[in-house]
Design a protein around this nucleic acid. Structure first.
Length: 811
RNA sequence: GCCGAAGUGGCGGAACUGGCAGACGCGCCGGACUCAAAAUCCGGUGCCCGCGAGGGCGUGUGGGUUCGAGUCCCACCUUCGGCACCA
């Protein structure tokens, strides 16, 4: 018998698939025929280097689903692309010389080669890359739509500034006050920035989960928490000194009578005005300066002692006319609510801590239920039976009713209004970097911000001499490019020199895949409506608050613009676990990256594919070890021999124990992949079938069992499966129907009855399936092994679980 | 601090709706083949007692529900992940 030679086989079949266009799909109107479509999407790779085992897990998993769905009669769209703008290529260019484009494209070429070598069933005709002008032309086009709709705007805002990368970071790129790419401490800086008004869609992002088919609960919970919707009221406090009413947001109007001081964020516009009229003016200004400098890391540290300065002024509490002191402290955030709070130390831990620090009064206004004494510190629990106290007319009322009544009275006076606040902030997407999509606007002294006309897109990214930002964007150094006539008035104007966050590129790539060569629009609505929503999206859980939110936001906007016919882009979501090495997530910066190349070289692609999925459940983190891959190689060799040995069996014989085992395997694999979305256990099931087949070399159904095993292993080891299928006389296994369970063959005449005495296993009996309860009990009692445990004792009860077990309860 | 996930042999893991704990694989032990080794094949492998038949114990800990709990409930311990002054 010929030996199993993975390299020869894999090269052969990859050529065959390529020539047959096996995984190419056409859009409707161009030859599409299936009624059932399935859009299988995995998050596109960031080409900062070559693929590692984490990618291999991600894409192999998607590949199994692709083959499985194809063979179950779906027309499967399974495209691939590259998130090729962004810092790694730019930083590499700075570090090692060369152009970021050359670096990105070299990486793409390497990744493409790896992907082809692993035999993934990708429709290569739909490949896109974010840095390709044919792609970013439409990124720019979409930006202009958002600008037109007032969903893209500029504002000055404090930003996270990474002094090392010389760039602005999004909140999710700051981890513990440090840059998530280079680890440098993040500083505060005020800059004019571009923002997408994602907060206008906060409620839609929150409410429309109902439209998704299946997202893990935990993923929805993380996004909910990120959006952070809270309902409350805005209450006006008067500052007589300045003759202004200052709104504060509170979710606890029942505690208004407990407000003993008032706090402004250091960035609040009133602080300077108060300072002007205060004997503490210098102290206040000094405090504002200091806190501004220590935004980011230090300010985010919750455990540090609270700081603040008294302004010397007072605000009037509208519920009781009380004058309460106004303080300035950085524990109040300008970015949330109104940047001012009423402080109720008796019922808020942060306010309590501040009051302790500065010796401010604490006045309880909510009594715990059943007269229990108030706890140490702030009383923040919510439980039934709480009543108001020290609250004027409202004292004695149950807290919820009290809150309502207080709000009602303030509303009548025009001093309160219901309000909803979100933790979610607008998405700052401009970057002072070179290697990104240029923002297609021009600044004109006369006309202001002028969009570049659509027919002049794309605004091509020009070459520059130096990619280092040095405080201003690299593009600003190319004066020839920057100077441009204003599209509106023709006078000399200047181009925008900032580029877009790469999350913009990836907020719509899944739409472009559907219609990747369209040169008159980003995509055709009919075509995207045909394929989307994505039936199965697979990617890391780390993208929940970034990419996934942005992609959902884009989709909703495009829906409102009539460009797509759906509100949610991803119907089903799955997060693969991390493949770790040395106890940490693989990443280039950690230097713990294990790639597939050596393994593929040594053992072949099929072995690597099978191994990464056999290591454990795909949604759990796994520690990379190679100790088991030999076992998989052993299995594949054995599989090869056992199947070819069985080739001489009679085709079409589908009865007997081996045939039933094959049926059970079909049922298991189909359910696991199709319904449960688990990928390790089908491999175990196929191993069992293979073991059974080798143990029964003379079984009449051996040929059927072999064919079934080959067919079932095809999504995992498509090259091996195709070769064996051919040797068994078949062709084009990749388009053969997935095996179906024959229920009649699965049916059994007998089953193994488990007999327990007092819940403990005592015997197993092979009995006919059609016995009644009485008969089952009788058989159980008759067993000698059972008798030994009955010991003449009275049987008080007998539990019968049909087709499973009998449990005899003795006294 | 808050939210979430998870704890099963020497190891990765299986056991889906409460019903045979440890499938499958790694590793290890023994045997066959071989001058020998590799490869391959066969058998064994949770722990304890027993020559054996067999018995007892066993899914992080302690309780509970149930004829029956890895699975359900309560309390706790540990590990990992996310958020973190959001009023």
């Amino acid at each position: 018998m010929e030996r199993y030679e993975p390299h020869d086989i894999e090269a052969k079949w990859q050529r065959v698939w390529e020539e047959a266009g096996a995984f190419h799909v056409e859009n409707p109107g161009y030859g599409a025929r299936a009624e059932r479509t399935f859009y299988m999407l995995e998050m596109l790779p960031y080409p900062s280097g070559v693929l590692h085992m984490g990618h291999v897990l991600n894409y192999t998993l998607g590949d199994v689903v692709t083959h499985f769905r194809r063979r179950n009669g779906y027309l499967v769209l399974r495209p691939m692309g590259y998130d090729s703008f962004g810092l790694p290529a730019e930083n590499a260019a700075i570090r090692e010389g060369g152009h970021p484009r050359e670096i990105a494209e070299a990486n793409i070429a390497a990744i493409r080669r790896q992907m082809r070598r692993l035999g993934w069933a990708i429709d290569w005709s739909r490949e896109v890359a974010a840095h390709d002008p044919d792609y970013y032309r439409w990124t720019q086009w979409l930006f202009l739509k958002f600008l037109e709709e007032g969903l893209a705007y500029r504002k000055e805002a404090p930003v996270n500034w990474c002094p090392n990368d010389q760039t602005v970071l999004a909140n999710e790129q700051v981890v513990d006050g440090r840059c998530n790419r280079c680890g440098a401490e993040v500083e505060a800086k005020n800059l004019e920035q571009w923002f997408f008004r994602i907060t206008a869609y906060a409620d839609a992002l929150l409410n429309e989960y109902a439209l998704v088919e299946y997202w893990p609960e935990r993923s929805i919970a993380i996004q909910r928490n990120w959006i952070g919707r809270s309902e409350g009221v805005d209450v006006l406090f008067r500052i007589a000194e300045l003759d202004v009413d200052v709104p504060v947001f509170t979710t606890r109007p029942d505690t208004l009578f407990g407000a003993t001081f008032f706090v402004l964020a250091p960035e609040h516009e009133l602080v300077e005005r108060l300072a002007e009229r205060s004997e503490h003016g210098d102290e206040l200004r000094e405090y504002v300066r200091r806190t501004a400098a220590q935004r980011g890391a230090e300010r985010a540290d919750v455990t540090r002692e609270k700081t603040g300065v008294f302004t010397g002024h007072a605000a009037t509490n509208p519920v009781n006319g009380e004058q309460i002191p106004i303080w300035v402290s950085d524990y109040v955030l300008m970015e949330y609510g109104t940047g001012a709070i009423m402080a109720v130390p008796a019922h808020d831990e942060r306010d309590y801590e501040f009051a302790e620090q500065f010796g401010l009064p604490v006045r309880p206004v909510v009594a715990p239920a059943d007269g229990a004494p108030p706890p140490e510190g702030a009383f923040v629990e919510h439980s039934d039976g709480e009543r108001l106290l020290n609250s004027g007319d409202f004292s004695g009322m149950p807290a919820p009713e009290g809150a309502q009544a207080i709000v009602e009275r303030l509303r009548e006076q025009g001093r309160a209004a219901p309000a909803v606040r979100f933790r979610l902030r607008d998405w700052g997407f401009s970057r002072q970097r070179y290697w990104g999509c240029p923002i297609p606007v021009v600044y004109c002294d006369e006309c202001g911000i002028v969009p570049v006309p659509e027919d002049e897109l794309p605004v091509l990214l020009p070459d520059v001499d130096d990619y280092r930002p040095k405080g201003k964007p690299p593009l600003a150094s190319n004066e020839e490019w920057v100077r441009v006539p204003c599209p509106r008035c023709g006078r000399e104007a200047r181009r925008e020199t900032e580029t877009m966050d790469t999350f913009v590129d990836s907020a719509w790539y899944f739409l472009r895949y559907c219609d990747p060569r369209n040169d008159s629009a980003p995509f055709d609505r009919e075509i995207v409506d045909y394929w989307l929503p994505v039936d199965q999206y697979v990617g890391g859980v780390d993208h929940l608050t970034g990419h996934l939110m942005y992609a959902r936001f884009f989709t909703k906007v495009l829906n409102d613009l009539g460009m797509v016919g759906f509100r949610e882009p991803f119907a089903r979501l799955f997060h693969q676990g991390w493949v770790q090495f040395d106890g940490a997530k693989m990443s280039k910066s950690r230097g713990n990256v294990i790639g597939p190349d050596d393994l593929v070289e040594q053992y072949g692609a099929d072995a690597v594919r099978l191994y990464i999925l056999f290591m454990g459940p795909a949604d759990q983190d796994m520690e990379w070890t190679e100790t088991g891959i030999e076992g998989i190689v052993r299995f594949l060799n054995r599989f090869w021999r056992v199947v070819l040995d069985a080739a001489d069996g009679e085709p079409g014989v589908v009865a007997g124990p081996l045939a039933r085992k094959a049926q059970e395997t079909i049922a298991k694999a189909t359910d696991d992949i199709g319904r449960r979305f688990v990928f390790n256990t089908p491999i175990a099931a196929i191993m069992e079938l293979t073991n059974e087949l080798s143990r029964r070399p003379d079984d009449p159904a051996r040929r059927f069992a072999a064919e079934t095993a080959v067919s079932l292993i095809q999504p995992y080891a498509p090259h091996l499966a195709e070769e064996l299928w051919q040797r068994l006389g078949g062709e084009r296994l990749w388009e053969q129907p997935w095996p179906e369970v024959d229920e009649a063959l699965l049916a059994r005449r007998t089953f193994e009855l488990v007999v327990q005495v007092n819940g403990k296993l005592r015997d197993r009996l092979e009995v006919p399936v059609d016995l009644g309860e009485e008969e089952l009990i009788a058989r159980a009692k008759a067993s000698p092994r059972v008798q030994a445990h009955l010991d003449g004792k009275e049987i008080r009860r007998a539990i019968v679980v049909p087709r499973k077990l009998v449990n005899l309860v003795v006294g």
